[in-house]
Write a protein that binds this DNA or RNA. Structure first.
Lengths: 122, 122
DNA sequence: TCCTATTGACTACAGGTGTAAATGGGCAGA
DNA sequence: TCTGCCCATTTACACCTGTAGTCAATAGGA
């Protein structure tokens, strides 16, 4: 059972999911600018992710290269399910209904979802 | 800009969304049993929700009656959007795709969503 | 009138989180 | 060999969160 990944840690995970393995320095460089984190902050987060066994590191000379242990897919599904359980009694339909009604769905999106569903029915 | 409502606070909000206004004691009685909170815990949460202006209270004799200031609809849409922004670049389609592929969608749900979308297209 | 139960306010406290500075070991250049 | 730099680890610290105990006021019963 992997421990929960916090918001800040998630940002680091996204970097590693996008490309890995990376050194701490490389992660620092790839963190979105709007975060404006110091290198130390990123290293702290990497350390915590190591402790949570969400990433692993392998030695590479005198540095480490980090790579994810948790699949993005699993994280994403887990978080989504958590939200849906908490807010919609576990069913996806009301979420779609909510967002759709709030005009969050363009007709392009509607069609995308429709064709997705058509595939699934087969 | 309302402050973020924590998980535990959200449980209290659900009670008040379901029925309000309620006294602190009544909220305590309606909190789901699996939480097993002491009355003090619930009162602390109510106090924090007051501070965050997520609920208001009006005097009623020597007690207060609490009622939500934040609409459930707003909270739900806000949290959903937050997740979708964080994980899916703001678009709902990949969320549906993910959950659907992971077999989270029964054929009944698929049909519900389909008919929902059909309505929206009109 | 005095005691007790109730109620809201205040305080507590450990663990998580966001953010980072201090520290210590090794390597490369002077 | 000394010195500064780079890297990972350790420590720090304030704030949030979950969970609850204590206190003071008050109202109702004895």
């Amino acid at each position: 059972m992997p421990e929960r990944i916090s918001d800040a840690e998630h940002v680091v995970m996204e970097v590693l999911w996008d490309e890995s393995p990376l050194t701490a320095q490389e992660v620092v460089e790839r963190v979105p600018e709007d975060r404006a984190w110091s290198a130390n902050t990123v290293k702290t987060l990497l350390g915590r992710l190591l402790a949570k066994e969400a990433v692993a590191h392998e030695e590479d000379g005198r540095r480490y290269r980090y790579r994810p242990l948790v699949a993005r897919e699993d994280y994403v599904v887990g978080e989504s399910q958590r939200l849906i359980d908490r807010l919609f009694g576990g069913s996806l339909t009301p979420l779609v209904a909510h967002l759709a009604r709030r005009d969050q769905l363009s007709s392009r999106e509607i069609e995308e979802i429709e064709s997705l569903l058509k595939e699934l029915k087969q």
